[in-house]
Design a protein around this nucleic acid. Structure first.
Lengths: 254, 254
DNA sequence: CTCATCAAGTTGTATATACAGGCTAGTACA
DNA sequence: TGTACTAGCCTGTATATACAACTTGATGAG
């Protein structure tokens, strides 16, 4: 695209860039329309359009009389929905805990190498955790992460901060792809989820991009009898105006 | 909400209303900005904002130099993603067929009445179909529809036109809610899907609204070994501008 | 000290105006 | 006949201006 972007788009890019770089953190104040008029030499209507669209897209929250503020990741349902399993459980009023089974450096092969777009044998981090809701196993998280993306991955305490929360902090998610399946688990999975041989698993296989390339690949196994995936959709035109709170895809986390 | 809506929102509502009523059909021309200036006594910028937002929300397509046109339902990935199973299968280059097992009037009770917000015992339509991909069963569609929503439901040939396609034609979808589960099916389901007792099902339970109230409630059973749900998400700020084609939730159909 | 009032800054909306650029149909010209 | 061009309509953007409504903090009266 050689054509110059319109001015309002340049303003949007400018602010998204500052947010992505962590220069502006959630709930920080974003330059007001009049400040943008001065600093960027645009008319107020142009600044208004930029901030208004960023608001519609979920990047910022605007309050008449107060100002414009960087939206909390949590409320950014347009960006990849960032619920980690811990939040999800706590929102239900239950207690979350997790146990790290494996946290190691490992050579990617087969499916993993392919999913992460790396050569067979490339070193990646491997995490294996079991998440519990009120002491009952609810998810096995089997995750591979690009070493270049999160170099300090081995030093993290993932029983204190979930991988999802950690990875979100390392860099903003930009794209996600997931597959949901129903399947019978192997014995090792059954044992960790404490389910019997007749119970299926809801399996989510998720790949997440940042900076244009896949950075993490996760397989999440859930006991079929204790977990379900819910989604709720409302089109922008209708209830956006009415309720103001649109949830696009619940429980899609990193 | 007693407060009057802003003028640009009134214009949007006006046009959405015309589309919903079928007065404006896909690819029909929508009044131009200047026509709205005259007929609605607004400034061009206000008309511009209304049409621009309708464009962003997927209701219309705009072409500089030509005009504004009602978008094809199919391309409205913002509204509830309207893939019916037949399209999905044909896109894979396979052939779709279906068999109607039951198509009747029935009294709603229990879960169905609750889901559709009607009294126990209210008459609703009940559809039970099996969908096949290349002759192999891929989905059992167990659907209940409000009689007031689709009065001619019993007269339809659902082996020719899928319920999803029919219902989309009757009125536009406005809201959808779904739950995805993995579970072991009962014998009747196993038999219809031609699977053995050790195979789980991916079950989608979906409720769809139109005009502010639930109009259809569907339970979709898929063989776990032959079906998976895929989703791909790209945030608006990033690839919207880049690719221009954002798919929000694949395979979510009515 | 407390409460009411007010000023300043902010967003939200609406209008008038202007120019650039895309598309189409009809016209003029060869 | 056919081609080039242009007038007219369309969207897309940008600016200047105006007023309303909301929020906060300061100021002043009681």
């Amino acid at each position: 695209m050689i054509a110059v972007k319109p001015r309002y788009q340049q303003l949007k890019d400018l602010i998204i860039e500052r947010i992505s770089r962590g220069e502006l953190l959630p709930s920080d104040r974003v330059p007001s329309e009049n400040e943008l008029v001065e600093s960027e030499k645009v008319s107020r209507m142009t600044a208004n359009r930029a901030l208004r669209e960023l608001n519609n897209e979920g990047y910022v929250e605007r309050v008449a009389g107060r100002g414009t503020f960087v939206a909390d990741y949590r409320s950014r349902s347009h960006l990849v929905e960032v619920h980690n399993i811990a939040d999800e459980i706590e929102r239900r009023g239950h207690t979350h805990s997790s146990q790290v089974v494996r946290q190691s450096r490992q050579r990617a092969r087969g499916e993993v190498a392919k999913a992460l777009h790396v050569e067979q044998g490339t070193e990646v981090f491997h995490l294996l955790l079991v998440h519990y809701e009120n002491g009952t196993p609810i998810q096995i998280e089997d995750r591979h992460v690009l070493t270049s993306f999160a170099p300090d991955c081995l030093a993290q305490d993932f029983e204190a901060v979930t991988p999802s929360a950690y990875l979100t902090g390392v860099a903003p998610l930009q794209e996600a792809e997931q597959v949901v399946r129903a399947s019978m688990p192997i014995a090792a999975v059954r044992q960790r989820l404490q389910i019997d041989a007749s119970e299926p698993c809801l399996v989510i296989i998720r790949r997440t991009w940042s900076g244009g390339r896949p950075v993490t690949f996760a397989r999440l196994h859930h006991p079929g009898s204790r977990y379900e995936l819910t989604g709720h959709y409302t089109p922008p035109g209708t209830s956006r105006a009415a309720s103001g709170d649109v949830v696009r895809l619940e429980k899609l986390s990193q």
